[in-house]
Amino acid sequence: MKLVKSVSICLLATTLLTSCGGNKEEEKAESSDDGTSISASESVDALKKMADQAEEMSKNGPVETVDFRKLKDLLPADAAGLARKEASGEKNGMAGFNISTAQGEYRNDDGSQSVEINIVDAGGTGALMGLAAWSIIEVDKETENGYEKTTKYGDYKAYEKYDNASKDGEIAVLINNRFIVTAKGNGIEMSQLKSTLEEVDLDKVAALK
């Protein structure tokens, strides 16, 4: 399972090291005006923690992911008041593990509002860490235009990002260290995005085997 761990680390390195920037001011962990800078040392610590978790996950071997058709069945017919225009799914494998994905696309007639819902089953492998790096680190950032933070959605670890000017944003939820449900929206309020997760029914996602 060393390859699984290596793949995860590669996926994570870009995410975390980009977030910390890499200049000397950030290495000293000096905060920006919004107080949210991440130092290089903190990113390295997070990478190590993720690598350890990926290795722990790999000890029992990958879990067989559910048929992507079951994930598709959980895509709602409407999201944030927008009709579903397309639903797709697939299952991909690499290095002894599989990932099942279902995607729903929702939009109004003129395309000014849209939502994309993704339900992913990473099978509890180290690949999960590359798909949800935010589940290990803590983020809390706010600007004049919007915010980005890790939080909780019910009992689940979640990540939110929103731009007030463009009304673009996303919310992602990690379920049972295996499933990731993400809703991304353009031209809609964050409250509408959050409501789409209720339409997906996260408890049904958690019950999948």
Rank of each mutant, 00 (worst) to 15 (best):
L71R: 04
E86S: 10
K72E: 12
E27H: 05
L16A: 03
D34E: 11
E55N: 12
S37A: 11
I38Y: 01
N23D: 15
A87W: 03
A77Q: 03
I9F: 14
A83R: 08
A77E: 06
S6M: 12
L12I: 13
F97D: 13
A83I: 02
S100P: 09
C10A: 13
E42V: 13
K91I: 03
S41Q: 12
G61D: 03
V63N: 12
P76W: 07
T14N: 15
A95S: 13
G61N: 09
R84Y: 00
M94W: 01
S39G: 14
A87H: 03
E42G: 01
K91T: 11
R84S: 01
G93Y: 06
C10V: 15
A13I: 15
D33L: 13
L71G: 00
G93N: 10
K59I: 04
L71F: 04
E64V: 11
T15C: 10
E30G: 08
E25A: 14
S6G: 02
S100E: 08
G21A: 13
L47Y: 09
D73M: 06
K91G: 07
K72P: 01
G89D: 00
I9L: 15
L11W: 00
E56F: 05
E86F: 07
G89H: 04
G61K: 05
A80S: 08
P62N: 02
N92T: 15
V4G: 14
A77P: 09
E27Y: 07
N23Q: 10
T65Y: 04
A54G: 03
A102D: 04
